[in-house]
């Protein structure tokens, strides 16, 4: 729970002041010295990360490295115990999930969560960027343009034929696609994608990699958390390796794969 954040003992933490702050020229996402402590357990430990506009970034790391917690912090699900989390110049630590989403930060969950009781079409319609207050929702009429956008997304995620089906009866892979589709409908500036290809076939994985590359078209930034190194290689982007809540290494896939520290904690096993 976010409210449970507590003051922490400043043990085993390097002093923040002495370190050069990361440059933030074109930063869309800016994390600096972020720590999250649950009952003495450091899920994130002084993590700093910068994602530039239009950048595609892969984040890898062993289980428990803090990848999902990092996404939670950015999207407002978890409040950091300390540290700076900014979207452009906006402090994200003071906003709730909905406000952050409305700023233009979209998220796809590790375990696909779509709305089972609604149809595929309705799921996308909910995600479509539009005024979100109750009154507007009540008065909402589906315009031709909106219909076209939904149709385009349906085609993109290959679910056109299933538009009228309840999300509950989709397969796991289709749910993954639907969730990616919902992410696209939000038209966000930053997409946080947690393990998008889990449960997908090789062909689907390739398709997804291409899609993500296309999305990060210079305007949108995409952060992908993934286990599948082949997929990360296919993305062909900068890779950040997390370990025990802190950044271990950063660079191209070849660079991090040859980093002895990474080899030791992650790849070597």
């Amino acid at each position: 729970m976010s409210e449970s954040s507590q003051a922490v003992l400043p043990m085993e933490r390097p002093p923040v002041l002495g370190r050069p702050r990361p440059p933030r020229s074109d930063a869309v996402l800016y994390l600096d010295g972020v720590s999250v402590v649950f009952d003495g357990f450091r899920a994130l430990n002084n993590l700093s990360l910068i994602v530039e506009q239009g950048e595609l970034r892969a984040v890898i790391g062993p289980n428990g490295a803090g990848k999902t917690t990092m996404m939670d912090v950015i999207t407002g699900k978890t409040r950091p115990t300390e540290g700076v989390v900014q979207f452009r110049d906006i402090d994200l630590t003071r906003l709730d999930e909905a406000a952050i989403a409305n700023l233009g930060i979209g998220r796809k969950f590790q375990k696909p969560t779509v709305f089972d009781a609604l149809t595929v079409f309705e799921n996308l319609e909910l995600a479509l960027k539009a005024p979100r207050n109750p009154w507007a929702c009540l008065r909402w009429m589906l315009s031709g343009e909106a219909r076209d956008r939904i149709a385009a997304t349906l085609a993109e995620i290959g679910l056109t034929a299933r538009a009228g089906d309840r999300a509950a009866i989709l397969s796991h892979g289709q749910r993954q696609w639907l969730e990616i589709g919902m992410l696209l409908m939000q038209d966000p500036e930053v997409l946080l994608v947690d393990e998008p290809v889990a449960g997908m076939t090789d062909q689907e994985t390739e398709h997804t990699a291409a899609l993500l590359r296309r999305i990060a078209d210079g305007r949108r930034s995409v952060v992908v958390v993934e286990h599948d190194l082949e997929f990360v290689r296919a993305l062909g982007c900068k890779v950040t390796v997390l370990c025990e809540g802190a950044m271990l290494s950063e660079g191209s896939i070849d660079h991090v794969q040859n980093d002895p520290r990474v080899v030791e904690v992650y790849l070597g096993r």
Partner: peptide
């Protein structure tokens, strides 16, 4: 909790 991430208050 999911729909919050779609920006609904």
């Amino acid at each position: 909790s999911r729909i919050r991430f779609l920006g609904y208050d």
